[in-house]
Amino acid sequence: MSIQHFRVALIPFFAAFCLPVFAHPETLVKVKDAEDQLGARVGYIELDLNSGKILESFRPEERFPMMSTFKVLLCGAVLSRVDAGQEQLGRRIHYSQNDLVEYSPVTEKHLTDGMTVRELCSAAITMSDNTAANLLLTTIGGPKELTAFLHNMGDHVTRLDRWEPELNEAIPNDERDTTMPAAMATTLRKLLTGELLTLASRQQLIDWMEADKVAGPLLRSALPAGWFIADKSGAGERGSRGIIAALGPDGKPSRIVVIYTTGSQATMDERNRQIAEIGASLIKHW
């Protein structure tokens, strides 16, 4: 067993022997301040990774656009098919120029040779490549099948209805392509620590998230040296922004954090800054 596999296998073990965790309302004060600064709703939840206990939450059962955070769930569904012998990570998928959609920095470079399922998941999570996500959605049967996968996990809230990039439209009061912070946090925890996926697939999923290259201005910008984070960000229309993450000190994750916002007129930089400040408060009061 590799060191990384050992780390993920012992996530519940280490967490069980940690000192009790206590909620700190100071972080919620910052979440509410972010709402004021952005002029928009902000949803927040913080779960203990081992027990699933909610440590703090704000608007945990209000719907927010998922945006690209759905790509972690998508690759979880792909990995479940791999575990069941219905898919192979090494299978190569070929596609054409007509398949390319807006923001496809990886797939646009491989029109000639195609990409493997493993490479597509890596591109979808680490670079948020939209064509990679659409190609992977095709392998599982489309958005409705991802929703069905989530329902089978016990998540009857999260739903995907459309493809990239239309799913980022974020129309107010439109339930399409949305989740709730509580539902997303619980589902992410199941994917990373539950028995739904094999140990190898859980490790692969967290490795992809740990290698995320496009979430630097968010929670990662607030992390002290030595902290662990595996995350996936999302951005959408109407001032929408979000991030889902597993993080913790001492090089291992111990909490799940989900943050979503929508309806702001603020710039992307300002949305990023507010999420980073929430992260800084979380870490300060850990």
Rank of each mutant, 00 (worst) to 15 (best):
G239Y: 02
L55G: 06
P181V: 07
M209Q: 02
V82R: 07
A245R: 00
A230P: 00
F149H: 07
S221Y: 10
L282V: 13
G251I: 07
K190H: 13
N98H: 14
N168H: 05
I259F: 07
T186F: 15
E210H: 10
V31K: 01
Q97E: 15
E145F: 10
L160I: 13
C18T: 14
P12G: 11
T139K: 08
S128D: 00
G76T: 07
V106S: 08
A245C: 10
Y44D: 01
A124T: 11
G114L: 04
E26T: 14
S104N: 05
T112S: 14
S122M: 15
L160N: 07
I229L: 07
L191V: 09
Y44M: 09
D161L: 03
S2Y: 12
H110Y: 11
S221I: 11
N152S: 14
I244Y: 02
Y260I: 08
S254T: 14
D269G: 13
L197M: 09
I244T: 07
E169C: 11
R63G: 04
T131K: 02
R91G: 05
L111I: 13
D212A: 04
A200T: 12
L135Q: 07
G279S: 10
G43M: 00
T27C: 08
F228A: 09
I54F: 12
R41K: 15
H156N: 14
H24W: 09
K32S: 12
N272R: 03
T267H: 11
K53A: 14
S96N: 14
P25H: 13
T158R: 00
S57C: 09
G234E: 01
I125L: 12
V8K: 15
Y260V: 07
S201A: 10
L150A: 09
L28S: 08
M153D: 04
D48F: 03
Q204S: 12
W208E: 03
E175G: 10
A9Y: 14
E119K: 06
T267F: 07
L223F: 05
D161Q: 06
R59L: 04
S122E: 15
A183N: 09
D177A: 02
V214W: 05
A170M: 07
L136I: 09
I259L: 10
V117F: 04
E145C: 12
T198W: 04
I244V: 13
K30H: 07
P25W: 10
T262A: 08
R92E: 08
I93T: 05
K30E: 07
G142L: 01
A185E: 00
R220W: 02
K30C: 15
G39W: 08
E119H: 09
T178C: 07
F228K: 08
L197C: 05
D33T: 15
R91V: 05
L199P: 15
S281C: 12
K32R: 14
E56R: 09
